[in-house]
Every structure is written in structure tokens, then in C-alpha cells.
């Protein structure tokens, strides 16, 4: 059985890769995928620690995270599509409606 810390390090690696992706990529869709990946890395730590402490609550929380992620994907993609209709682009650098 691998140490729990190994799982945590793997999760940290994946999280870092996802975060870096968010910062580096310009395609909104890929940024979106990176965020999903970060969520998953957190899920991994939760499950690993749930086993570590012999406690089911971590897993319940992961379940909730999945549901929220599903909702987020649905809304996020809808926003993306609406923006594409409007602006004909999914380049994150061209989406600046938040500007003051």
C-alpha cells in the first residue's frame, strides 16, 4: 500500500499543472478543462485523507464537489457558447466585458 503522502504529492502535481495551464493558455475551453483537472486533484486528496483517517465524510464531500462541478460545467459552457455567438471568439484575452 503506497503512503498517503504519495497521493497527496500526485494531487499537488496535477493541481500545479492545472493552475499553470489556467495561467498560460488562451483558449477558454482548455482553461475550463484545466479547472476541472484542479478540482479532480483536490478530490484525490480528499479521498486519500478520508482513507487515512477512516472517515467517510471526505468521500461525501467529493460527491458534492462532483455535483457542483457538473453544474459549473453546464453553466460555464452555456456562457461560453453565448459569448461565441456574441463575439465569434473563445480567446480569453478578447473577453473583457468585466472591464470597469
Amino acid at each position: 500500500m503506497p503512503e498517503t503522502s504519495y497521493y497527496l504529492i500526485l494531487a499537488a502535481l496535477i493541481f500545479t499543472v492545472g493552475a499553470t495551464g489556467v495561467l498560460l493558455r488562451r483558449n477558454a475551453l482548455i482553461i475550463f478543462m484545466c479547472i476541472e483537472m484542479m478540482l479532480n486533484s483536490v478530490n484525490l486528496t480528499l479521498i486519500a485523507l478520508a482513507r487515512q483517517w477512516g472517515n467517510l465524510e471526505g468521500q461525501i464531500f467529493v460527491f458534492m464537489v462532483m455535483a457542483v462541478a457538473a453544474a459549473e460545467v453546464a453553466v460555464g459552457l452555456a456562457i461560453l457558447i453565448a459569448n461565441v455567438r456574441h463575439q465569434k471568439s473563445i480567446n480569453i484575452d478578447e473577453i473583457n466585458l468585466l472591464k470597469w
Partner: peptide, 29 residues
């Protein structure tokens, strides 16, 4: 930033290694 994140998290995890729990004593069903 990614490097900083990775280094700090790894450092904190590796300095307090968590052993895998003994399957027999695991309370988890």
C-alpha cells in the same frame, strides 16, 4: 508561480509523512 506552489506543498507534505493506515485497523467500511 506553479513552481512555488509545487515546492511549498511538496515540502509541507514530505516533512510530515503520512504512513498508510493498517488495513486491519482501518475503521473505514
Amino acid at each position: 508561480l506553479g513552481v512555488i506552489l509545487l515546492l511549498t506543498v511538496s515540502y509541507s507534505v514530505l516533512t510530515r509523512m503520512l504512513k498508510a493506515p493498517d488495513d486491519a485497523t482501518s475503521l473505514l467500511q
